[in-house]
């Protein structure tokens, strides 16, 4: 099924002309993949191109290159609503969730992987129960809980819910899985060297778990960054909005989208993430692979 493999298989039978056949198969495969890639790439291109068009041109004849590059859209985005503030909100909330999750998940994951204590099995079972439950199930009571705690229209629920919800549990099991596979003797050497459990965790287990910590950090950051339902339910003041909420909010008085602004804002939100993604694609993709095979 793989281009080079198919070519190699044919090589055995066809002998001398194998070079040409290999070339043809490769060209066929590559063009097929290119065709499939169109709907994956085109939306991004069209988004960027339209973000540079005027409201009028957007609805004119389609062209990938704007008649006139209208950079002012990007300025207007910031005038229409406190977009910079929203950007900042998203960054600091996602960083908080990531930091908290790393500490909490690696602490719990370490204890569950390495320490013998009564109730460990029960706690595992308890946590596992939440792994596959959609957040829509608990959003209603959480709404009342947050209101009761007086945290409505604050960022606290946006930090607490992802950290302690099923994503946090997933991160815990990911860390546990990694710790279990680490050589135990290193930590025992640490104990012999006089470290407490906390010391072993911090000075030995964590430094050796950088790949897992990196993976958890990446998927947690993106998870929090893209969260939509929770901000929608808990936030009401405009200046508290996060990016996804902000993007959805570029509408006119009738609720119709202001496309040129919305697309400019979306471009501003997406392009930095995509840039980082392309630069660190290997690590990011591997992180998701790791989180998926945990089961």
């Amino acid at each position: 099924m793989n281009p080079t493999e198919t070519a190699a298989a044919q090589m055995v039978h066809k002998g001398p002309s194998h070079k040409r056949i290999r070339l043809i198969t490769r060209v066929c495969w590559t063009s097929a993949l290119l065709v499939v890639a169109v709907p994956f790439v085109f939306p991004f291109l069209w988004m960027v191109s339209s973000s540079l068009k005027s409201a009028a041109e957007i609805f004119g004849a389609p062209s990938l290159i704007p008649d006139r590059f209208l950079w002012s859209n990007f300025v207007e985005v910031f005038n229409y609503q406190p977009f910079a503030r929203h950007y900042f909100n998203s960054i600091y909330i996602s960083l908080s969730v990531t930091g908290l999750t790393l500490i909490i998940a690696s602490l719990a994951g370490y204890a569950l992987a390495r320490m013998r204590f009564a109730g460990a099995g029960l706690i595992m079972l308890f946590l596992v129960s939440g792994l596959m439950v959609p957040e829509e199930v608990t959003i209603i009571p959480n709404f009342f809980l947050v209101r009761w705690l007086g945290l409505m229209d604050t960022h606290a629920p946006l930090i607490l819910l992802p950290t302690f919800g099923s994503h946090g549990v997933m991160a815990t099991f990911l860390m546990r899985q990694y710790f279990v596979a680490l050589p135990k003797e290193l930590e025992e050497a640490g104990t012999m060297d006089g470290l407490s459990r906390l010391g072993v965790w911090w000075k030995i287990a964590l430094p050796m778990s950088r790949p897992a910590l990196g993976a958890v950090a990446i998927i947690t950051f993106l998870f929090s960054w893209n969260l939509f339902l929770e901000p929608l339910v808990f936030l009401s003041s405009l200046e508290k909005f996060t990016l996804p909420l902000s993007l959805a909010n570029f509408t006119d008085a009738y609720g119709m989208p202001l496309w040129h602004l919305q697309l400019a804002a979306t471009t501003l939100a997406v392009v930095p993430v995509l840039t980082i993604y392309v630069l660190a694609q290997r690590q990011i993709i591997e992180s998701f692979a790791l989180s998926g095979v945990k089961g």
């Binding site: 003797e185 025992e188 050497a189 012999m192 006089g194 030995i204 430094p207």
Partner: peptide, 20 residues
């Protein structure tokens, strides 16, 4: 008595050298 206060030292099978 905790391991570190027993006045013993251990050489492990896998050496257990801290990689970092």
């Amino acid at each position: 008595v905790p391991p570190a206060r027993r006045g013993v030292a251990m050489v492990f099978q896998s050496y257990a050298l801290y990689p970092h």
